[in-house]
């Protein structure tokens, strides 16, 4: 099929923004796994929770003030903060008990969280899809219209990604976190309180997930089940990019996002299948991902 430049640009931008969100989700997933060795199956469900909380905050604010892009800012930040606390509590009371336990038990615990959080969402927000409609004019570009909000998503995603990089590479706590990936004993021998670091990393990962959900709300209606689609795509991202590699996660996220965005246009039902073709190709070519190395046991 032929595609004019305008719609090509739209698909590219929406793919980039989708990729950015996948990156924020997968980066949190990888960070938590890298530091604590816990694979959080419920990561995307917490993302969904963040989306619903943003929705409620925005809706509440919109009854007091004129709905606008600016009103989304406190809603997203509020939801991010709440998710940070949720993450902290989850780590403090549940996840912490799973360190050093066998993998299936860890997976099961977070799998149970999917069911529990999913039903809590159903109790509070019901089963209908929710979205935020922002009063934003689309920009005409060539023969098409581009939602300028896509730039907000890509921009804010880039800001958070940069923050994450700065945090890990430049701050003292970030350096401790990175050190903890390599040697827990060393870090605790330095007299640093590992439990606090762990709680913080988990909370940070969950908060970033909540942030990305809030930012995405104006272009994607959220509903139950979306979390499972997303966690699958995150898995595809980390397998393609290679676990533990932030660069790999970024490249794979953008790749998956863009491929998904174009596939949806051409073959709506097969978008996930296209991602799988990439996944399978990568697996055959490089079993530990594009940027990953075989984990030493």
């Amino acid at each position: 099929m032929s595609m004019d430049f305008g719609s090509f640009l739209i698909q590219l931008l929406s793919g980039l923004s989708r990729g950015m969100m996948l990156f924020l989700l997968s980066a949190g997933l990888s960070l938590i796994f890298g530091v604590m060795n816990i694979l959080n199956f419920a990561h995307a469900t917490l993302w969904l929770l963040g989306g619903y909380i943003t929705f409620s905050l925005y809706t509440a604010l919109a009854t007091q003030f004129e709905p606008s892009l600016l009103l989304l800012v406190p809603a997203v930040l509020g939801s991010t903060a709440i998710l940070f606390v949720v993450g902290w509590l989850l780590e403090r009371f549940l996840i912490r008990r799973m360190y050093g336990r066998e993998l299936p038990e860890q997976l099961l615990l977070t799998f149970a969280l999917i069911l529990i959080i999913g039903d809590l969402i159903k109790m509070i927000w019901g089963v209908q899809n929710r979205r935020i409609v922002l009063p934003i004019e689309a920009w005409p570009v060539f023969d098409s219209f581009i939602n300028p909000y896509l730039f907000v998503i890509i921009g804010s995603g880039a800001v958070v990604a940069t923050f994450l990089w700065w945090f890990l590479a430049r701050t003292r706590i970030g350096k401790i976190v990175r050190a903890a990936v390599y040697s827990r004993d060393m870090v605790s021998a330095l007299g640093i309180r590992i439990p606090t670091i762990y709680a913080m990393v988990f909370a940070l990962g969950v908060a970033i997930a909540g942030f990305s959900a809030g930012v995405f709300l104006p272009i994607i209606p959220i509903g139950l089940g979306l979390d499972m689609d997303l966690i699958i795509q995150c898995f595809a991202v980390v397998v393609i990019g290679g676990f533990g590699s932030i660069a790999g996660t970024l490249v794979a996220s953008l790749l998956v996002g863009i491929v998904y965005s174009f596939s949806v246009l051409i073959w709506p039902d097969g978008a996930l299948a296209v991602i799988f073709v990439i996944l399978v190709a990568v697996l055959i070519w490089r079993p530990y991902g594009l940027f990953g190395t075989e984990m030493r046991s």
Partner: peptide, 16 residues
């Protein structure tokens, strides 16, 4: 209607 919640809590308790 909250079967997932119920079984989720059972699993949680079992794992712990």
């Amino acid at each position: 209607i909250y079967w997932p919640l119920t079984i989720g809590l059972v699993i949680l308790a079992m794992v712990l």
